[in-house]
Simulated scan of single mutants.
Amino acid sequence: MYIGITSPVVTGHPATLAEWERDAGIVELARVAETADSLGFHHLTCSEHVAVPTDVAAERGGVYWDPLATFGYLAARTSRIRFNTRVLVLGYHHPLEIAKRYGTLDTVSGGRLVLGLGVGSLEEEFDLLGAPFADRGARADEALTALRACMSTPTPEFHGVYYDFDDVYVRPHAIQPRVPFWIGGRTARSLRRATTLGDGWLPFGLTLEQTETMLQRAELPQGFEVVLSPSRSLDPLGSRDLTLRALDRRRQAGATIVSTAVSATGVEHYCDQLHALRDLAPEIGAAFDAQPLSDIDESATRT
């Protein structure tokens, strides 16, 4: 099992935003990224919302950093850690747009992109962006197939109901031969979508027991990632045993990767917590620095 970091600062959700994050910015975020990178954590995250209606922001928060710009900067400050969009809403983008923009990110980061992708649920945001909402599930399924067809090639071709393209050139594109797609969701359909069209599942809004039940009923492909998050931020310095139990409980539930936030009073405390988490995690079998990046054709970096 690997451990990634749910990035601080980039998401201003009222239920999880720490006081120190309110005045923090790119300097503090880069400090966290560099520390997590040096310690061998698996990934950092960044969510996507384009424009959150004011009344919805009171519940979900209104601060959401753009993942492409954020990860582009952090790629230059790190060398190993992966970048996980958590999640891109498929209905907001044409597959070729994702392939070009995030394929470029994969190139400049040396093949460290993990695309977290989802159907989306905020109808008001769909309306603001002029994106169809009613058939978003069917559109998302086709978008995933189209995205797989165009993510890692300069001459993609796809013919479907919603998306149709050929005789086009997309360069640069992703240098990973197969960019991992982790599919977000909280339904059995989202898990089926993940097992048939993706490489991993990012459940949210479920109890651990509900997640376990759904996983037990599913047939997971070999190498499929199950990415689970603790219900609250971990405090390895202050609550060692609780931290170990939270990690081990998710491993027992089927997690191949845990993505977690840590509690902190400031950026230095946050980095100290990362060091403590790194020291504790091997006790429950968590691995660091052990998962190689995908084999990449060196010539692809010149495309």
Rank of each mutant, 00 (worst) to 15 (best):
M1W: 02
W182P: 06
G40N: 02
S233G: 14
T196G: 10
H42Y: 14
P8F: 05
A51D: 08
G111W: 04
I3P: 07
L29C: 04
V9W: 02
T35I: 07
A18M: 13
F133D: 01
G118T: 10
G184Y: 02
D55C: 03
V56H: 06
I3G: 07
I5P: 01
A75F: 04
S231P: 07
E298N: 13
E123D: 12
A58F: 04
F41Q: 04
A36T: 04
V27Y: 13
T196W: 00
R86A: 15
Q216Y: 00
L197H: 08
L237E: 14
V119L: 07
G62E: 12
R139Y: 02
T301I: 14
R31H: 09
G91P: 05
P154L: 11
P292C: 09
V114P: 03
L88I: 11
D289E: 10
Q210N: 10
D66Q: 12
R232A: 14
S190P: 03
G91N: 13
D241M: 09
A246K: 07
L68T: 11
A143C: 12
E34P: 05
W65D: 05
H275P: 00
G254F: 03
Y270F: 12
A218K: 01
D166I: 09
R82I: 05
H13M: 10
I296C: 08
A15H: 11
F41P: 00
L74G: 09
R112G: 08
L293S: 06
F126M: 06
T243R: 05
F181T: 05
L234E: 04
G130L: 07
V226P: 00
S38N: 08
T211A: 13
V226G: 01
T265A: 13
E48V: 04
A18K: 10
R60E: 13
Y102H: 02
H159W: 00
A30F: 01
R217Q: 10
L122T: 13
G198L: 00
E48W: 00
Y102S: 06
Y163K: 00
A146H: 01
G185M: 02
V119D: 05
A140R: 03
L208K: 07
S109L: 06
A143Q: 08
T196E: 12
A99E: 08
A261R: 15
H159E: 12
G4Y: 10
D135G: 13
Y270C: 02
L147V: 03
S294G: 14
D106F: 11
A255F: 05
G137V: 14
Y162R: 04
L68D: 01
A149Y: 00
V262Y: 04
Y162V: 02
D167M: 09
P67E: 05
A264G: 10
G118R: 06
R186S: 15
T301E: 13
F165G: 00
A246G: 13
S263L: 14
